[in-house]
Design a protein around this nucleic acid. Sequence first.
DNA 1: TCAAAAAGTGTACAATAAACACTATTTTTT
DNA 2: AAAAAATAGTGTTTATTGTACACTTTTTGA
Lengths: 231, 231
Amino acid sequence: MQKPFQINRAYKEVQQITVAVDCLIFGFNDGKLELLLVHRGFEPERDRWSLIGGFVLNEEDLDEAAHRVLSDLTGLDDVYMEQVRTFGKAHRDPYERVLSVTYSALVLKKDYNDELVKSYQAEWFPIDGLPELIFDHKDMVDSAMQRLRRRIKSGPVGFNLLPKKFTLPQLQKLYEAILGEEIDKRNFRKKLNSMDFLVKLDEKDKSESKKGAYLYELDEEKYNHIKNFNI
Amino acid sequence: MQKPFQINRAYKEVQQITVAVDCLIFGFNDGKLELLLVHRGFEPERDRWSLIGGFVLNEEDLDEAAHRVLSDLTGLDDVYMEQVRTFGKAHRDPYERVLSVTYSALVLKKDYNDELVKSYQAEWFPIDGLPELIFDHKDMVDSAMQRLRRRIKSGPVGFNLLPKKFTLPQLQKLYEAILGEEIDKRNFRKKLNSMDFLVKLDEKDKSESKKGAYLYELDEEKYNHIKNFNI
DNA sequence: TCAAAAAGTGTACAATAAACACTATTTTTT
DNA sequence: AAAAAATAGTGTTTATTGTACACTTTTTGA
């Protein structure tokens, strides 16, 4: 049997642990969901791919740490980002104990400063064609994907992956890429229509089809007050 | 601007943080959802109430730490327990930086060793009548409740709060207590029936009503293969 | 024996989800 | 110049699921 609770809980000689954040930064491009990875130019695990991560500093909130790491790598601030889960197996990092809290962000790829991304040796990979990742980073991807699938069905979060103006075929492809299944376009549009937060513009986007598709944008007011988002 | 990613990421002189787990142990009694709290008999915050928590040991997986803390306090092993979220504000604990990972468990109160609970000065409180809690423990309760409400609607987890044999009125009260709303009993029973994992027994339980209600138990085989649980 | 308390049971209507096929526009090919 | 190819756009019908709703049964205690 273990020592009583009170003794463990005393603020004395408690073991400390290195804490990291690892960010799952999703982008959407050419009909595919992509994930931003970094090529490690340093030991250990030099030359392998990993999630974007960094250590939590002492005077820094956990959320701040995640935003700092994201900002350092991409120059993006104010990104929709949420905690996913914490990975804490004692030996998940074979070199040293590191506890890692994962965060997930949905970003618009073109908003990136490409220079910055390049200088950090970061690269986008399609989610179904990831290279081998270090440690338990594949598990992190799986858990973030699982969460993303749930979240995108029950809340209007997917729009963070699209530009301000987007077409319905683009939006549908986004959903299909994340959910991994085909969606009937009539039913899809019907649902979106019933939620009433899309504004049809008089412009068409012809970059993705011969005929061209109407562009839409969000009605910010309505978008911020959606009650029962559901796809 | 922050230092480049690579430098932060080097395994050198990284700041370490004390990591705790805090457990939200829910029980169900007399139609009320309850939460197990401990009365702190030690500094800091002596004599105030807190969640059941403890520090993560160096050679211990995070999940193990949660189970150890739960086991120490209640003698219960093999409890359905899942990670909720991680609280990491730099000053959430004003005495010292402590990162806390919360876990939530649904247990059957009577399975407890009362002696053990007493010796640890633990006590059950109805969820809507909690005392003031230390630090951000109230936020932890809120976030665990939010999650519990979601989980109980989409998966058959609530049964962990009930004995092996239970009545439908008990089960319904459990759902009402957690969801905080009344449920129509005919619709409730219809749904349960359609999922087809309850076995009606020939016994009645008369402890909670004059007429007595039929006892049910889970068909373990079917229970473990429920596809679309939904209430 | 009557009243009170809780258990148990079914049906009708409303809302949501799912299945399904053709026309319109433009570009490319022949 | 005509035809074929590619993709956008649009409604209706049916099935499934959710919601609203009221009375009878059993037992105990007054």
